[in-house]
Design a protein around this nucleic acid. Structure first.
Lengths: 209, 209
DNA sequence: TACTGTGAACTCCTTCACAGCG
DNA sequence: CGCTGTGAAGGAGTTCACAGTA
């Protein structure tokens, strides 16, 4: 079970989704690499390589056993216990994220949300209570939150990040369109939705000229 | 002006954002590669290479002139005329996206949104009118929409995509957690928010053990 | 026969390192 | 000097191609 790259982790997560879906939708108990490749958008060789990464082996005769492969990926990817996460910022995007995440049963749950607007705090949305940002420290420690989703305006993003790091946060999914400065052991993923769209728009034009 | 990869386009978009911000926030008219690198999260060498891609040249003495670099990136990336785009699906996420995009002044505007729910159609949100999905064909053609943002449940995503392709759409930003089958000349970017979060969570744990 | 697992080749991306310049 | 622009090296990610297997 070698160490796996970001790309491989991304794909393993997608494979698992495909496997669960295809296990539920049909009576198939097994799947071949080329089938999983088709469903996931990867190549067959890549599927096989990625699966090596989790230390699972299929059989040449029947391919991969869906249930046990899902299991192996889960063992590899998932936290030991159900993860509690927080959302910072309850604008439209923050609220949409809370709703979207907590509407499905996942290995993680958004248990707290923070905002500075007094009208947005002390409410409950999809099982997630909202607090004033002043209470971040105590709530993060109380729930032992390791990872947060940041969706606040760019101007506040760095200072709030500094606080979060101080309170022990280890991972940030950042929706603010700004690069965050953090210590090396903190993992940040930037998800600038407008930048992503601009890229799509660019290649949509380029592919067709 | 060589052809540029996806990665380079992604970063150019980020650079431009940083440049505009730093041009507005200070009186600096010029910037060095290491400064832009710091702001954008890239390396100095990468900044210089990427800027080669748009055919712009700085000076060793003063670095890059912010205004004209922004201009060059814009010439390279942006559509000739302001782009009109559509959102398919007006759940919480779709509504948040319409609000988020149209609240800022961008090179693109969401001019139409579609849903099947009668209560969600024939309304206006942030300058964007909503229509029933039945009207997609005529509205897409009327506005000459090339690119859409798809945020509908996975089960409908493929069939709606097939329609969109038929109506002449060239790019799709897909928020549904499913791989879409499209012809080769259609550009699809999948943005599975839950998968992205699972990745963050994984590396948040791994970086710290 | 049709698959998996995987060394090796290949392609793409990033960084190095330095000539050239003001 | 300290910067840019860039050839060349290095590293990462992907695909090829085939031995091994049931």
């Amino acid at each position: 079970m070698s160490k796996v790259s970001e790309k491989i982790v991304e794909r393993l997560i997608i494979y698992r989704r495909c496997l669960i879906r295809s296990g539920a939708n049909s009576n198939n108990t097994h799947i071949f690499s080329h089938q999983l490749a088709k469903k996931s958008g990867a190549s067959p060789a890549q599927v096989r390589r990625d699966i090596m990464g989790v230390g699972y082996s299929g059989s040449p005769a029947h391919g991969y056993e869906i249930k046990s492969l899902v299991n192996s990926i889960g063992k590899f990817i998932d936290p030991v216990k159900r993860e509690k996460i927080a959302v910072i910022g309850l604008g439209n995007l923050g609220r949409a994220i809370v709703d979207y995440f907590n509407r499905q049963s996942l290995e993680m749950e958004i248990v707290a949300a923070f905002d500075t607007n007094p009208e947005k705090v002390n409410r409950v949305l999809m099982g997630c209570k909202s607090y004033h940002v002043k209470e971040m420290k105590s709530i993060i420690q109380e729930y032992d939150i390791q990872t947060v989703i940041l969706c606040i305006p760019s101007i506040y993003a760095q200072e709030v990040t500094n606080e979060l790091v101080e309170y022990g946060i280890k991972g940030i999914l950042n929706y603010a369109p700004i690069n965050l400065n953090v210590p090396l052991n903190i993992y940040v993923e930037n998800l600038d939705m407008i930048a992503v769209f601009e890229k799509v728009s660019y290649f949509a034009r380029k592919n067709n000229k």
